[in-house]
Amino acid sequence: MASMIFCDCSSSTTARLLPLSCHKLRHSCTPLHFSPYLTFSISSSKTSFPFLSIKSHASSTLISAKMATENTAKVIDGKSVAKQIREEIAVEIARMKEAIGVVPGLAVILVGDRKDSATYVRNKKKACDAVGINSFEVHLPETSTELEVLNSITKFNEDASVHGILVQLPLPSHMDEEKILNSVGIEKDVDGFHPLNIGRLAMRGREPLFVPCTPKGCIELLHRSGVQIKGKKAVVIGRSNIVGMPAALLLQREDATVTIVHSRTNNPENVIKEADIIISAVGQANMVKGSWIKPGAVIIDVGINPVEDPESPRGYRLVGDVCYEEVVKVASAVTPVPGGVGPMTIAMLLSNTLSSAKRMHNFS
């Protein structure tokens, strides 16, 4: 285990960096040691998950987190679930518009000319358009001052037609990212990154206004797949502020017994093998082996890692943190990469924006 490298994955609705030179894949499940700076978007009325504001339709078939009854795990189709959620959101938005004449609005601030960031802003706009959310965008040049970005945020904070604000990351190096993100009003922090939202999430008896989109999507996938969380042993691999830490807090709120595995954990495979539920957000390709998995465990793979693939038109393909070919033979259910957690993050962003509009206008 001395060669293992953990690099906590910070997946979010904001863009990350795609390494232009991916490590060569020797074997499908050989762990690769590189920083997972991939640009991607993976980005709800009440269900058994208290932070969703749209109606949930859980699968009638409960997935046991004990012993697998088949040799091949059930594939948790995040793309299909996200599509269902977007349809539910569209219905709610139409109902809200008809009842009180209000349409939710999402604002995005983009600084610079990064092609990847621009692509993800376009994708978010398409997602908004598809469900009926109004989109607002400010595109500032790379040379903009920090004050100009803060002024744009202030305008959106004060705009009653805007119910959610996103600052597309990464920001230019001369800007204070924490200062800028914290300037977003907590009532419009649809990414769920504001310290007050995270603090409320961590405290018993307190409810955050918003939950970070990727962890929220992970829990929603478990609920809609019929996975029982209460009383189960859960392991979160990775402790980033954006995924690992809030995912652990959410599992704890669901009455799971939670352990976080990170870069200083001794014998992580032994800890992981005790888990009924695993959420992996470490950002290391194919790190989690089938031999690390308890038979019948449920696995939510947040990792999205590029590995060189000469047969792909792009020259690389995307894989998760878990060795899918091995794990699928042991687990009872697993999310694929791509097509698992990824589509859920943007769905949760839309859900948070709808929730914000409902809250601001006291609409239920």
Rank of each mutant, 00 (worst) to 15 (best):
150 L>V: 12
75 V>I: 15
7 C>W: 12
231 G>W: 02
277 I>E: 11
169 L>T: 11
113 D>A: 06
214 T>I: 15
215 P>D: 01
200 R>C: 06
25 L>K: 09
20 L>Q: 14
134 N>W: 05
315 G>N: 03
178 E>G: 03
101 G>A: 08
67 M>G: 09
223 H>D: 10
52 L>G: 14
101 G>Y: 11
77 D>L: 02
44 S>Q: 10
206 R>K: 14
94 A>V: 05
358 K>V: 12
73 A>P: 10
285 A>T: 11
188 K>Y: 07
307 V>S: 05
306 P>M: 09
331 A>E: 00
128 C>Q: 13
110 L>E: 15
286 N>D: 03
338 P>G: 11
14 T>S: 15
342 G>F: 00
44 S>Y: 11
87 E>Q: 02
148 E>D: 11
350 L>Q: 04
363 F>K: 00
246 P>Y: 09
221 L>D: 00
185 G>V: 04
48 S>K: 03
267 N>Q: 12
296 G>F: 03
227 V>G: 12
270 N>V: 04
152 S>C: 14
362 N>E: 15
78 G>D: 04
238 G>M: 09
71 N>Y: 07
255 D>Q: 14
243 V>C: 12
304 I>W: 01
357 A>E: 14
255 D>W: 09
314 R>Y: 11
258 V>G: 02
115 K>C: 04
130 A>I: 01
17 L>F: 04
294 K>V: 06
62 L>F: 09
243 V>R: 04
282 V>S: 08
322 V>K: 04
143 T>S: 13
309 D>N: 10
29 C>G: 13
328 V>S: 07
270 N>M: 04
186 I>A: 01
124 K>T: 13
240 S>H: 10
74 K>Q: 15
154 T>Q: 14
206 R>P: 00
18 L>M: 15
287 M>T: 08
199 G>I: 04
161 S>F: 02
164 G>R: 04
65 A>N: 04
109 I>W: 10
177 E>T: 15
148 E>Q: 15
211 V>A: 00
102 V>W: 03
55 K>G: 08
55 K>S: 15
19 P>G: 06
296 G>K: 09
310 P>G: 00
243 V>I: 10
62 L>T: 14
154 T>G: 09
353 T>G: 10
20 L>C: 09
